[in-house]
Design a binder for these strands. Structure first.
Length: 486
RNA sequence: GGGCCCGUAGCUCAGCGGCAGAGCGGGGGACUUUUAAUCCCAGGGCCGUGGGUUCGAAUCCCACCGGGCCCUCCA
């Protein structure tokens, strides 16, 4: 770094600002190459271009120097000759380093090997880098540095740069799909007096002026439903939610969730919406509905199978949960399958565990698991003619839960009872249950139209579509422990 | 919270009781169409941190810090 600082001073001594305020380029790297090809096709004189980018390679050969620049569009080689630039300008090339950002002006030509190249007439330093970029052969491998200093990862690892472009295309397509169907995108509070809408531990913060604790939201649901009460019939929010839990390959404490609510729809309509949306986003982002996953291929062509939860568990374990309505009986059956059963688990928790351990990881192809026990779904509407069940589905792809949805419960009296039931479950030992809040119940008492709602873990969806098994590979700056004193 | 693995030069990694190593990058030199340029020269280190064992520790043991994977939990 000392050497690079000395070079900064030499540029200054030469009367050059090593950090000039602006630079106008005429072409990106890709445009410059395209302009050359166009000139070659039409027989015109080669174009004169002004390009700019980071120095990613430099080959000095005495009285000639090749520099590879990279901008957002790609790489471009520039060629600098002593007899073209003159003594002074050519000698100053010695004070350039890998990682510096420079601008180069000159005519496009092709070298002996056919490489499109800028014949430099002039060049200028646009930003002197004081620290060296990662090594060029192996690039940056160290996962910790890749996450902590993501800019280095993006600088040298093309696949990573491309992956986050893909994430953008997926999110963009999801928005477009919903927008085109008349959904209104809204923003609801991140800081909430009660953290509801999911069963998870919230982050707690404190508002000084209000003199009260607030929670970072764990879901979007309860506010979006208030908007249905208000008269919007199709709303969605795509935003960050926060859950105060372990950091793993599948969990980041903050993650991006999509929730959408549609009045006068039920969970069957929402399944069609989900299929259509995911298939659309996949095709828009990847150009195909066949997605590589490990050594297999996931086919996202709709429609996707809809399997009742009871059937799914029976298929994968041989256990019929309806034949084990008694908690003790189901616990015994689960234990017989090799599940490490916690004695505090109640019947619905056991069902949830069977699902998570035996169905979810084995469900590679997109599958809707439908009709859940009411205790697991306190915000979902009961399924007519099916006591104890609600109209709910979860979408599994690549062994992961990607979406969760139901026909929304809009009976305020029953909703109040459901929340009380959750409180009883918690009192009986279940740590994480879904709690309601009075304001939400008051809203329901004003009347919410029948509706279907959907929640999609966007990071999970991006993982599936980009073939990644760690959420940190699809989140630009994943949560890491603070770097200690070495 | 539990288990397993990892931490050595700017980067990628060898070394695993006996002088701290290589490639790339960086420095000096040669070279006017190279592209992993090539060739010559000289450098570069609290071996994650702190204890312990030993005549002697990067190497063995313990603790701590940080990371990865799996389990737990969730989405």
């Amino acid at each position: 770094m000392a050497q690079r600082r000395a070079k900064v001073e030499r540029w200054r001594a030469r009367g050059v600002d090593p950090y000039p305020p602006r630079f106008r380029r005429s072409h990106t790297a890709r445009e410059a190459v395209a302009a050359l090809e166009e000139a070659e096709r039409t027989g015109h004189a080669p174009p004169r271009v002004t390009v700019a980018g980071r120095i990613v390679a430099m080959r000095q050969m005495g009285r000639a120097t090749f520099i590879d620049l990279r901008d957002a569009s790609g790489r471009l080689q520039t060629y600098h000759r002593l007899d073209v630039l003159g003594e002074e300008a050519y000698a100053a090339l010695d004070d350039l380093d890998l990682g510096d950002i420079v601008g180069v002006e000159g005519e496009m030509f092709r070298t002996r090997t056919g490489e499109p190249t800028v014949q430099a007439r002039a060049y200028s330093l646009l930003c002197k880098a004081l620290r060296a970029p990662p090594e060029k052969w192996h690039g940056l491998q160290d996962t910790e540095t890749r996450y902590r200093q993501r800019y280095l990862d993006l600088m040298v690892n093309d696949v990573v740069r491309e992956r986050f472009r893909l994430r953008h295309r997926i999110v963009q397509a999801v928005r477009r799909y919903l927008d085109e169907r008349g959904f209104l995108e809204v923003e609801t509070p991140v800081l909430q007096p009660h953290a509801g809408g999911a069963a998870a531990r919230p982050f707690v913060t404190y508002h000084n002026a209000l003199e009260r604790h607030l929670y970072l939201r764990i879901a979007l649901e309860l506010y979006l439903k208030r908007l249905l009460v208000g008269g919007y019939e199709r709303v969605y929010e795509l935003g960050r939610v926060f859950r105060n839990e372990g950091v793993t390959a599948r969990h980041n404490p903050e993650f991006t969730m999509l929730e959408a609510y549609q009045a006068y729809a039920d969970y069957n309509d929402i399944m069609e919406l989900t299929e259509g949306m995911v298939a659309y986003a996949t095709r828009e982002a990847l150009g195909s509905l066949q997605v590589p996953w490990g050594d297999t291929v996931i086919d996202l062509t709709p429609p996707w199978p809809r399997v009742p939860l009871r059937e799914a568990i029976r298929q994968h374990t041989g256990v019929d949960i309806e034949a084990h309505r008694d908690t003790a009986a189901l616990r015994e059956a689960a234990a017989a399958l090799g599940l490490a059963v916690d004695p505090s688990w109640d019947w619905p928790k056991l069902v949830d565990e069977l699902l998570a351990n035996f169905v979810e990881p084995r469900t590679l192809q997109p599958t809707f698991i439908i009709d859940y026990p009411v205790e697991l779904s306190p915000l979902a509407k009961a399924k007519p003619g099916a006591p104890g069940l609600v109209e709910r589905f979860e979408l599994f792809i690549a062994g992961r839960e990607v979406a969760n949805a139901y026909t929304e419960l809009n009976d305020p009296t029953e909703q109040r009872q459901r929340f009380q039931e959750q409180l009883r479950r918690r009192a009986a030992g279940q740590e994480e249950v879904e709690l309601g809040d009075e304001d939400f119940l008051v809203a329901l008492e004003h009347g919410m139209p029948p509706a279907g709602g959907l929640g999609v873990g966007i990071d999970r969806l991006v993982m599936v579509l980009t073939g990644q098994t760690s959420i940190r590979e699809v989140v630009l700056f994943p949560a890491l422990r603070e770097k200690g004193p070495a």
